[in-house]
């Protein structure tokens, strides 16, 4: 008996506008991601790919349409902090690590929203740093790390609360090609080891091509890619 894959992210007819409706960032987007899948969203600047990611991360509220994550509708929920803390891990183009904290302390920041004790948070941070091959850099501040290392700390931070979904917004956009490849290798490795669902936004088609499936966006719409997913589910 074959297992039917779960749809963990289900975006239905989502519209998001800015400038009092003059700019249509998302124009009726339908998009699904299955559990454990690595999906990349690519397209030119301003096509709406980051807006779509932010909507899934509940950082932006759509004007209309619905988004289900793990079967729960997130678009109508009032307080989404718990969802962001427990269900998803975010990686940004810039590492966005706090400069006054060490790598280990930065990893513990999302864990304040859990019941973990200080020692448990520290142990978890050490495990995650080892996972991204930075076990020896726990006490280093961001300024003492290379760009690639900082982004690997950011990848580890996204896993802090053991989320099922990682959302990465141009994670290599601020790195040189070598550091970018290394970061992608770590991300891919982590995604496989931790069996998490990974949605990655990149304007770089080469980076996007590392995914199991690539979705192309243009003018706020899915131009190609998601139809294939629909077919696969069918």
């Amino acid at each position: 008996m074959s297992e039917q894959p779960d749809t963990v992210i289900d975006v239905r007819n989502v519209v998001k506008t800015y400038d009092e409706g003059r700019t249509r960032a998302l124009d009726g987007v339908n998009f699904q991601v299955e559990r454990g899948e690595f999906v990349s969203i690519t397209g030119p600047s301003g096509c709406g790919k980051s807006t779509l990611l932010h909507a899934i991360a509940a950082l932006e509220r759509p004007d209309s349409g619905t988004i289900y994550v793990n079967g729960d509708e997130i678009t109508s929920q009032r307080d989404l902090s718990r969802y962001r803390a427990r269900s998803i891990g975010l990686i940004f183009q810039l590492h966005n690590l706090l400069p006054n904290l060490t790598a280990s302390e930065n990893l513990q920041v999302p864990m304040y929203e859990t019941d973990l004790s200080a020692s448990a948070r520290r142990r978890r941070a050490e495990e995650l740093l080892a996972l991204v091959d930075l076990g020896d850099k726990a006490g280093k501040r961001p300024t003492q790390l290379s760009g690639g290392e900082r982004q690997r700390v950011a990848i580890a931070r996204a896993l802090a609360n053991d989320p099922g979904i990682i959302l990465a917004d141009e994670p290599t956009g601020n790195l040189d090609s070598k550091a970018g490849q290394q970061a992608m290798a770590v991300l891919r490795n982590v995604q496989r080891q931790q069996a998490v669902t990974l949605v990655l936004v990149s304007h770089n088609r080469q980076i996007a091509a590392a995914a199991d499936r690539t979705v192309y966006m243009l003018d706020g719409k899915i131009a190609e890619g998601d139809a294939a997913a629909s077919e696969r589910r069918a």
Binding site: L59, S81, R84, A85, F92, N96, V109, P110, E113
Partner: peptide, 8 residues
């Protein structure tokens, strides 16, 4: 960023 990381 802190809000995005789940801070209430």
């Amino acid at each position: 960023i802190l809000r995005a990381l789940g801070w209430r």
